Amino acid sequence: MSRAMAPGVPDVPDSAASAEAATTERPTLFAAFKTLHRFEVGPIYLFVLLWGMLVAAQKPSDLWSAAALLALFINGLSLFSGFVLNNYSDYPIDRRSKLKGYVADAVERVGLRKTLAMYWIEQALTVAAAAIVSVLLDNWLFVLVKLSGIVAGILYNAEPMRMKRRGIWNPVMLSIRFGLVPGMIAYFAVHDGTIGAGGWMLLAGATLLSFSRGFWNSVSDTDEDRAENILTPSVLHGPRAAMSGAVLSLLPACALIAVGLWVLLGPLYALVGVAGPVGATVYRYLLLRRVDDDRGAIELLSSPVRRIDARWSKATYWTISLVGLAHVVIAT
């Protein structure tokens, strides 16, 4: 199949593809499958998928009910399948990139049409699982939440909407895909399809964590995104302004998480659970203080501080999840 026949993907010059193919070894089908799904990030996102379940559970058995296990399946497959769509949509860009050429190789190994078909098959499985949970809980809102995640992924990746290119809509779509939807799916599954005031506050705070990360993570890719006319917050407003926006959006996130945990679990759990988000806020504020201009912002967030920063990103969800688990264990 020619590249021009792939739906929704612009054509890539044959000369560029031929040159790349001549310098890289063709991946195996299994290796391409792993690359497209980015399985290596599973441990990083584990608590993003789990936190809602852990804070909503009232007893340990809630965590291995049929609805809970299906919710984990839905969140996990939705996450990895979302990377497939992203890699499919970014294929022309990755083909031109020296760093991401291996991802384009994986798309070519599977085939453009088959890559897109794989995404839709996997999403169909998650919708079917969501329908089963809705039957178990007698609440079809579960399916609507799942469908909203699919819509957000399409809006983020697909032309002509391509919200990835549209400034603040980039982090808005990310916050829905990685904050709101997985949090609601996990929470609903162990809370009989309902959510109270404390749960909504906690969910809003967790969604803002992902919103903030959309600003922050755009900084290191500023030059590449500008070259491809991808108007992320960093390209549109400047890297240092994007860093400031990320830190500012973390402040209400911390407040909402603290209050939500207090309402759901109590003051001690709230104090421990909000430690991760507060630590990430302080660390990123200190990094912002070290930056004098936009070029300095890009260089700083492309330096080894990224490893420490990544640990703080993980800690934001880890502490929430761990206090939820501790509450379940201690309460029983």
Rank of each mutant, 00 (worst) to 15 (best):
S81Q: 08
A71L: 12
F30C: 02
Y119M: 05
A331Y: 04
L46Q: 05
S313E: 15
D309V: 06
L268F: 14
L54A: 14
Y91S: 05
A131E: 06
Y102H: 15
S220W: 07
L77V: 15
A331H: 09
K34Y: 04
G149L: 06
S89C: 13
P160N: 09
E122L: 15
P171R: 15
P277M: 07
I93W: 05
V135F: 07
S89W: 02
A255H: 13
Y283N: 11
A242G: 09
L231A: 12
G238F: 10
L287W: 02
I93N: 14
D225T: 11
I185E: 06
R284K: 10
W140E: 06
G149H: 07
A258Q: 12
P182T: 13
W318S: 04
A16I: 12
T222F: 01
A189H: 11
G199D: 08
E159V: 00
G101W: 11
S18A: 15
V259G: 13
A71W: 05
T35H: 01
P267M: 09
G205R: 06
Y88L: 09
L72D: 10
T319W: 07
V272E: 04
D293F: 02
L256I: 11
S244G: 07
E122C: 14
L287S: 01
S321T: 11
S148P: 06
S61V: 11
E25T: 14
V133M: 07
R311F: 09
Y283H: 12
V282M: 05
Y269C: 05
V259F: 08
L264Q: 14
G8A: 08
V48L: 15
L300M: 03
D192C: 02
L136N: 03
R166I: 07
L137A: 13
V84Q: 00
W318E: 05
R284Q: 15
S61P: 02
L286P: 01
G245R: 12
W64Y: 15
F30V: 14
P182R: 12
S148C: 10
V110Q: 02
I44K: 04
R289G: 01
L325D: 01
T126N: 05
S212N: 13
V323G: 03
V235L: 08
V55M: 12
L236T: 04
K114L: 05
L155E: 00
W262L: 11
S65P: 04
G8E: 01
